[in-house]
């Protein structure tokens, strides 16, 4: 149902998204049949393509041309795909979006090379953009994305982390690439500086809201809905916002400590998820997500009126209310 709604929201961009999809297939084409297979495996797994969508919509505030803007939309999606392949090595993940991960189907080394190949292809594409500031934005984004992941590894199983720590982590891990997608789309199409600023902030706020919802869904959804085991973030030791808010509740605390000390049974793991689902943590995390959504919508209000403005608003609302 949600997937259908998303398709409807993208309907104005349908033909341009088809161009992007075709271009992604061209981009991952390799002389190595192994890389070809691994990259196509990733591409066919699909995804919401939310980053390219934001690039395209942001570009509509300037001189829009799909032929030039695809050189931004394709690389941001490739960077996202590459970071997922590497994340799966870090998380030792067997499935993603209901399919075997590259590391599970081949091995970690092949996953490393696949990710490196996709990063390199992303950079090949983005160099079609001659605005040097755009490259400073993207390179800074890639470094911040990486630092976000480094902090996530460092913070694993660290129960004393604060909400602020979490927010700073997801800013780097997720929000910054969505923000950069909006900013780069706008820069590449020659949008005025004021509008670029609003779009950049919009992307940041939507990204924060989106990641919090993602972290809530990891706990409240089923394996089938997620395409991977429910609660896998928590099982990996990643402490997300609902867990941070629920961690001191009497029904949650002992199970959480048992889990991180490695003494929890698989039944109690399920009980832990159940207790967090029933806790105030979910409601409080939703409230924070909503705060970011409101901030995003405020930024949209300040954009010049055009068809993309409404689409950005609708997608932001959808992303923050989605159920998958």
């Amino acid at each position: 149902m949600d997937k259908m709604k998303l398709k409807l929201l993208y309907s104005d961009l349908k033909s341009d998204l088809e161009v992007i999809e075709k271009e992604l297939a061209v981009a991952v084409n390799s002389s190595s049949h192994l890389l070809n297979e691994a990259s196509l495996h990733l591409l066919l797994a699909g995804g919401k393509r939310i980053r390219p969508v934001f690039v395209l919509l942001a570009a509509k505030f300037g001189n829009y041309s799909i032929e030039s803007i695809k050189n931004v939309a394709v690389p941001v999606e490739l960077i996202h795909m590459a970071s997922l392949v590497h994340d799966d090595v870090i998380d030792d993940a067997e499935t993603r979006r209901g399919r075997e991960t590259v590391k599970a189907q081949w091995n970690n080394r092949v996953a490393m090379y696949t990710g490196d190949f996709l990063f390199a292809k992303a950079m090949e594409y983005i160099t079609e953009v001659k605005n040097t500031y755009a490259h400073e934005v993207l390179s800074h984004t890639m470094i911040e994305l990486c630092i976000g992941e480094i902090i996530q590894v460092e913070d694993k199983r660290f129960l004393d982390q604060t909400v602020r720590d979490y927010l700073r982590r997801i800013k780097r891990k997720t929000a910054i690439l969505i923000s950069a997608s909006c900013e780069l789309g706008a820069i590449a199409s020659g949008t005025d500086a004021k509008t670029v600023r609003h779009l950049k902030l919009f992307g940041y706020y939507v990204g924060m809201s989106f990641q919090i919802i993602d972290d809530i869904l990891d706990i409240v959804s089923t394996d089938e809905q997620l395409g991977k085991p429910a609660g896998s973030d928590l099982l990996q030791g990643n402490i997300t916002l609902p867990v941070l808010y629920a961690k001191n509740e009497p029904t949650v605390a002992p199970l959480l400590h048992a889990m991180f000390s490695g003494t929890i049974s698989s039944d109690d793991q399920q009980n832990l998820l159940k207790e967090i689902r029933n806790s105030e943590g979910i409601t409080k995390a939703k409230q924070v997500s909503n705060l970011y959504l409101q901030k995003a919508l405020n930024e949209v209000k300040q954009l010049p009126a055009n068809s993309a403005k409404k689409s950005l608003q609708n997608i932001a609302l959808f992303m923050s209310k989605r159920k998958f």
Partner: peptide, 27 residues
């Protein structure tokens, strides 16, 4: 990065170290 079982913190960060150095070269 080991072909199998790269689950230690050192191995996880080896993945990210490579990505970080790549980002630095681009920057």
């Amino acid at each position: 990065v080991k072909e199998q079982n790269a689950t230690s913190r050192e191995q996880q960060l080896q993945v990210l170290a490579g990505d970080y150095y790549s980002g630095k070269y681009y920057q």
